[in-house]
Structures are given as C-alpha cells and as structure tokens.
Amino acid sequence: MSDKIKIGISIGDVNGIGLEVILKTLSEAKIMDYCTPIVYGHTKVASYHRKALGINDITFNVINNAEAANPKKANLINCWEEDVKIELGVANETGGKYALLSLEKATEDLINGEIDAMVTAPINKHNIQSETFSFPGHTEYLQERSKSKDVLMFLMNDTLRVGVVTGHIPVAEVPKSITKEKIVRKLQLMNESLKKDFWIEKPKIAVLGLNPHAGDNGLLGKEEQEIIIPAIQEAFDKGIITFGPFPADGFFGKGSYKQFDGILAMYHDQGLIPFKTIAFGSGVNFSAGLNIVRTSPDHGTGYDIAGKDLADPSSFMEAIFAAIHIVKNRREQESLLKNQLRTGGKIVETAFDLKDDAN
C-alpha cells in the first residue's frame, strides 16, 4: 500500500478550461512522484477534451473508488453514467450540473478520508446553483459540508499571502458586514494557518483599511477608528503579531507587503486585484480554517479560450503542490504533538526546525 498523498481533483465546468489545465498538469510525469492524483469526472468527457486539444501523452487508470488508485498513474473515477453534450466556451446548465456531480463525489471522499486533499478546477458560480448547491462559491460550500465554524479565503504564492474578511458579497454590503469580532476571528484563522499549514513560527500580519487612505483619521470614513483599529489591538493582545490599518494602494504600490507573512484585506477585490496583478499564473486559492485541505488555481472557467490550447496550467500545478505541502505539514505537526504526549510534554525538535524536511 502506497503512503503517497492522494489528491482528489474536481473537474469544474466541462465547457471551460478546467480539464485542459488538469490534462496538461497530469501530463507532467513528475506529478506522480509526489502524489497520487484522482480525477472525479468521466472518461468520455476527458477523452473529448484530449482530442479537442491534441493531448495524447496521458491515459487514465479508471477505478471505482479512491482506495483502488494506482500510485504510479493518473486515476479517474466515473461520477455519472450518461453521455454529456460538451459545448466548449458556453455557459449553460450542462456545465453546472456535471461540475457539481464531480465536486460532490470528491468532497464526499475528502470528508470520509478516502483522499487526503482536494484541488478544485473552476466552476461557474451561476450555472452550478441547484437545490443542493446554493452557495456563492467553493469556499462556502466546503465550510458547510465539513461542518467548519469559519473559513478564510487565502490567496498565496511563494512571496505573498492575502486573506479577506468578507468574501463573495456585493461591495455595497461590505461596510455593514465588517465587525470587530469578524476581523479578530479572521486574524486568528490566518495566524493559526500560517503556523500550522506553512510552519511560520511567529507570523507578522498586516491589516488593510477599508476606506481610501485608511480613513485619513476619520475624514474619509469611521470604520478604521471604530472597528478596524480596536480589532487589531484585540488581536495583538491575544498574541497575534498584527499591524495596521494600512492604506491598500500604497501598501502594495510601495512593496510593503514583502515585509509581512500574511495580509488581511477587508473585501474580495481589495485583496484579489493586487494579488492577481502580482502573482497571476503562480497563485493558489487555499481555504484556510477547514479541517480538510482544499486548494484551487487563481483563475476562472476561461470560456473565451476553452478548447483553444491556450490555458496555462501553472496555477493548477501550483495548487497541487500547495495541497501536498499543507498535508505534509499537518501530518508532521500531528506526529510531533503525539510524540509530545508520549514524552510528557518535552519535544527536542519543533515543527519549525523540521520545516525544510517537510517541504
């Protein structure tokens, strides 16, 4: 029995670029050196994309369940029986229906421990809506399915990690959705994740202001003085090394982000626009705070380039490697904690001493 990490892969919208980046990623033989990939989809859909793209250097080992996965091959589980009419580049009900079937099966196996982590290809947040999926996106869906109290959308690459206080909500609803308690909780999630998932012993976290110039001492808004600064102080009092609030434009424009291990933005575009400008193509979306490991690439369905062999698989490949590293880090930490219990609380080596070995 192989001890390689099993990475489940949901295929996303069948009319988008999800299967293209999956096929291109799994065509790289080195992937199988680090994990056992299991795609949740259907052989005929995969074959359609292979032919459309002219990708001939990958074949799938078709299995009935994750336990049967071959650690030396790319594996595939058929999640439905019927034929699917694929219309590349078209947003329709078909794309949403089969994206959801793939996601549901992969999530079920992840929660049941059949796979170690999940990497999700992009969905269309509109056509996937159904009686069983009424969420703004993957993050909220996985929070409910895993019965997690809270979750942090965490975008990352080698040099930049950005989380958001409010996720997929209209900009008009952002100010009333920001509370001191929510900011403190997101800072706690970020701090815990930086320690547990990335093995940063004493994370330094920057907090962005909501308003231009971080409110300019109340001239451009009161949220900084009434909510954000008290939240930063409370988090600091709890032992979280936190600074801010910083004006978002100058913070990224001057490269101040390079001095911090994590950055907490107030809303989606405030954090994701600079992140994707700096890290697009190498960025990964990680759902921090869950008791499961899920990552995804930092791009969408790419309908405009679907089937044209133009999709860059770099971000998807980075998402797989990020999932592998996080699973390894969590396993090592669990092992160290068990060792601590056996030795009466004394650990000679800490998780942070072993960081290089785990990565």
Rank of each mutant, 00 (worst) to 15 (best):
A66C: 14
E67F: 10
E67V: 11
A68S: 14
A69I: 14
A69G: 11
A69N: 09
N70G: 03
N70I: 05
P71N: 05
P71F: 07
K72C: 00
K72S: 12
K72T: 11
K73T: 00
N75V: 13
N75M: 10
N75C: 14
L76E: 10
L76Y: 08
I77F: 14
I77S: 11
C79P: 09
C79T: 15
C79D: 07
C79G: 08
E81Y: 05
E81L: 06
E81N: 13
E82D: 13
D83A: 15
D83N: 15
D83Q: 14
D83W: 09
V84G: 02
V84D: 01
K85P: 02
I86N: 10
I86Q: 12
I86S: 06
E87F: 01
E87K: 15
E87R: 06
E87S: 12
L88H: 08
L88K: 06
G89V: 06
G89Y: 05
G89F: 06
V90T: 14
V90F: 08
V90Q: 09
A91H: 00
A91K: 05
N92W: 04
N92C: 08
N92F: 05
N92Q: 07
E93L: 14
E93G: 01
T94A: 08
T94M: 10
T94Q: 04
T94Y: 02
G95Q: 11
G95D: 04
K97A: 05
K97T: 13
K97P: 07
Y98P: 13
Y98G: 12
Y98W: 07
Y98N: 04
A99R: 02
A99Q: 11
A99H: 08
A99I: 12
L100S: 04
L100Y: 07
L101H: 14
L101P: 03
S102L: 06
S102I: 04
S102G: 15
S102A: 08
L103A: 09
L103S: 04
E104Y: 06
K105C: 08
K105L: 15
K105Y: 08
K105N: 12
K105I: 12
K105Q: 15
K105A: 14
A106Q: 03
A106F: 08
A106Y: 08
A106L: 10
A106T: 10
T107L: 03
T107H: 02
T107K: 01
T107F: 03
E108A: 08
D109P: 01
L110C: 02
L110M: 00
L110P: 04
L110R: 03
I111S: 00
I111G: 01
I111Y: 04
I111E: 04
N112C: 10
N112E: 15
G113V: 09
G113F: 11
E114K: 13
I115W: 09
D116Q: 03
D116W: 09
D116R: 12
D116V: 06
A117R: 12
A117N: 09
A117I: 13
M118G: 09
V119A: 05
T120I: 12
T120L: 11
T120C: 14
A121F: 07
A121D: 07
A121Q: 03
A121N: 06
P122Q: 01
I123Y: 02
I123H: 02
I123M: 11
I123P: 02
N124Y: 01
N124A: 03
K125C: 00
K125R: 12
K125N: 11
K125V: 01
H126R: 00
H126P: 00
N127G: 02
I128M: 08
I128W: 04
I128E: 05
Q129G: 00
S130T: 02
E131C: 00
E131T: 09
E131N: 13
